[in-house]
């Protein structure tokens, strides 16, 4: 069954079609990758799902809820959370506070409850702190919770961003190039971690990735975009042999050469 389902989603910037007539089904508990050359519309598609952009045409359904026109804060409450291509943590908050912000949608305390420090508020805060600590541990950042986010090393920041996204208890997690700028070892760790997220927590993962090793290694389905349109979809093996994909990545004419060589 499809958890996220898009029908003919189109997003234009002026005359440029960033995403055109895109149909994608994301099965529940799958790891689904979106690949494509730079400027193919991958991140724009993410922004359409998470409510940063409103697509001009088409429909996005998540668990049978339409997402088009909803604000980002509504969408995250429905169970979609994301990370960013360039890490976007709250730099002057601690790691702990970053995660606590992620929990925001699940806390209920109001102005007067907070000022009066009612038992319910105190209990909620305590539980939130516990959950944040648990998440820190989960992403291997135990002991670094009191560091300001901007003072953490790069790899830790990436993992903290994922922890923050997990704090909103998503059903679908969108990861925008989670292994960007990582060395092979860190990349392998990240791959294991993503698989772990799906296997242990049952979270569906939609992934934008440039490193083919990662894409081929962990995804069950791969969608290839070029100029905002879907040019291929299938299992990693299917995609690897698809001439259209090779053409998109290497340019016209190379298909012939590749087939000659092979």
């Amino acid at each position: 069954m499809a958890l996220l389902f898009t029908k003919k989603v189109t997003k234009r910037f002026g005359g440029l079609v960033a995403v055109g007539d895109l149909d994608i089904d994301i099965r529940e508990k799958s790891i689904h990758s979106i690949i494509g050359p730079n400027g193919a519309g991958k991140t724009t598609f993410f922004n359409c799902i998470t409510g940063f952009y409103k697509p001009e045409e088409g429909e996005i359904l998540f668990n049978d809820h339409s997402l088009v026109g909803l604000l980002p804060d509504r969408i995250v409450r429905l169970g979609i959370s994301r990370t960013y291509q360039n890490i976007r943590l709250f730099p002057n908050l601690t790691a702990m506070e970053n995660i606590l912000v992620g929990l925001h949608g699940h806390l209920r305390a109001g102005f007067f409850g907070i000022v009066m420090s009612t038992p319910a508020t105190r209990k909620e805060e305590k539980e939130a702190a516990e959950e944040a600590r648990r998440l820190l541990k989960f992403v291997n950042l135990a002991g670094k919770g009191d560091f300001l986010a901007k003072n953490l090393p790069y790899g830790d920041q990436r993992r903290l961003e994922i922890a923050r996204a997990l704090a909103s208890r998503p059903k679908l997690l969108l990861l925008d190039e989670p292994t960007a700028g990582m060395n092979p070892r860190e990349t392998q760790d990240m791959m294991d971690f993503i698989q772990h997220l799906r296997d242990e927590l049952g979270i569906t993962i939609l992934l934008i990735e440039h490193q083919m090793r990662v894409v081929m290694g962990i995804s069950e389905t791969v969608t290839v975009l070029d100029y905002g349109e879907k040019i291929a979809e299938g299992t990693p093996t299917e995609i690897q042999g698809n001439p259209k994909v090779i053409e998109a990545y290497l340019g016209r004419g190379s298909t012939a050469e590749v087939s000659q060589v092979s």
Binding site: T50, P72, V76, F90, V101, S117, E125
Partner: peptide
Amino acid sequence: LRLRDSRLGRAWMAMREDEDVAQAMGINL
């Protein structure tokens, strides 16, 4: 002091740091 260490204080500070991301974390701007 009470507000600062609460859900609301954190929401304010998150908004100060990055409004778009704060919204994407479920904060009603």
